[in-house]
């Protein structure tokens, strides 16, 4: 019934080392000092996931270029055109009249976070990434921790991209104080986590992703345009009070405002509260969506 293969052709050398670790010993280890061992495994997994994201990011140089091209086109082309058309009055955190370039820079930082957050979270449901998602989810660690690792890794990449963009913007003439750049770090990270968590929620409900265009049309564009990223809310109110209300409840507006204030070393308490609350809600929804008893069960694997 079966062909008899040449056994030696497959593994010509007998292995020198076989059982360096065995799962039972790990088990005994785990029973002996359950909490420290578990904590240790969780940290090892986190650093591996961070390292993998970093290596992948460095391996795909085009990704950084693509991520930068989008906001830079907006900053250099779009803002230049709008500068003349749009009058901005003095609203906090600004203390003087500002150019439109300065106004939209925090919004474009938000755009980077939004695109990268969606991309890295939704990569979980790309066809070619299905296997690596399974690998992640079958690791002997709690799901919420694995999702957190993935989220933190993607967010750190976003933060890196945001600062590269801020550096290029500075070269273009849009500058902030050193204190502002420093204060913006936690704000940008928080914003990145919030949109990344939203991406995780979507990835648990979307069956399979054919392409990124659908997400762009139905998630990224509405979230971005219905926010204070491009126009201040009072300007929106002039056009339509309803539009303004929609923008005001959009958590992305608050993430952008948090970053805007932070770039002037100021705190926007409402922005901070809403961004944290949205992160908590999206995070909980993602954990619920990925619960083995639910989430993936809704998706035919």
């Amino acid at each position: 019934m079966n062909a008899v293969p040449d056994r030696d052709a497959f593994a010509p050398n007998p292995p020198k080392t076989l059982n360096v670790v065995d799962a039972d010993r790990l088990d005994r280890d785990a029973q002996g000092r359950a909490a420290p061992a578990f904590f240790h495994c969780a940290i090892v997994a986190l650093s591996a996931i961070l390292q993998r994201e970093a290596l992948r990011f460095l391996g795909q140089r085009g990704r950084l270029l693509a991520a930068l091209a989008r906001p830079l086109v907006w900053l250099i082309v779009f803002a230049a055109g709008f500068r003349a058309a749009l009058g901005l009055s003095i609203t906090p955190p600004y203390q003087t009249y500002i150019t439109y370039e300065i106004y939209i820079t925090p919004g474009l930082v938000g755009m980077i976070l939004l695109f990268n957050g969606m991309q890295s979270s939704l990569s979980l449901v790309y066809d070619r990434e299905m296997g690596s998602m399974r690998l992640l989810l079958t690791a002997p660690l709690p799901r919420w921790w694995l999702l957190t690792c993935k989220l933190v890794a993607g967010s750190l990449i976003s933060v890196l991209q945001a600062y590269v963009f801020l550096a290029v913007a500075a070269a273009w003439g849009v500058r902030f104080t050193p204190g502002g750049y420093l204060a913006a770090l936690p704000a940008i990270m928080l914003g990145a986590l919030m949109v990344g968590a939203l991406g995780l929620v979507l990835s648990s409900f979307i069956r399979q992703l054919e392409n990124f265009a659908g997400v762009m049309n139905f998630v990224i564009f509405p979230v971005f345009f219905l926010s204070s990223a491009l126009y201040p809310l009072w300007k929106m109110a002039e056009a339509s009070p309803h539009l303004r209300d929609i923008c005001a409840v959009n958590p992305f507006t608050h993430a952008v405002e948090l970053i805007r204030f932070a770039l002037y070393a100021k705190l926007d308490p409402l922005g901070l509260a809403v961004t944290i609350a949205a992160l908590a809600v999206f995070g909980a929804a993602a954990i619920w969506g990925y619960d083995p008893a639910r989430g993936l069960a809704a998706r035919k694997i």
Partner: peptide, 25 residues
Amino acid sequence: YFAALHGLFGRRAEVRVMAVLERLG
């Protein structure tokens, strides 16, 4: 990467990589 998802890292993981690769030629 996979080893780390299972809590294995450093020299133990490196040794294990070589062992499984040898096992599979």
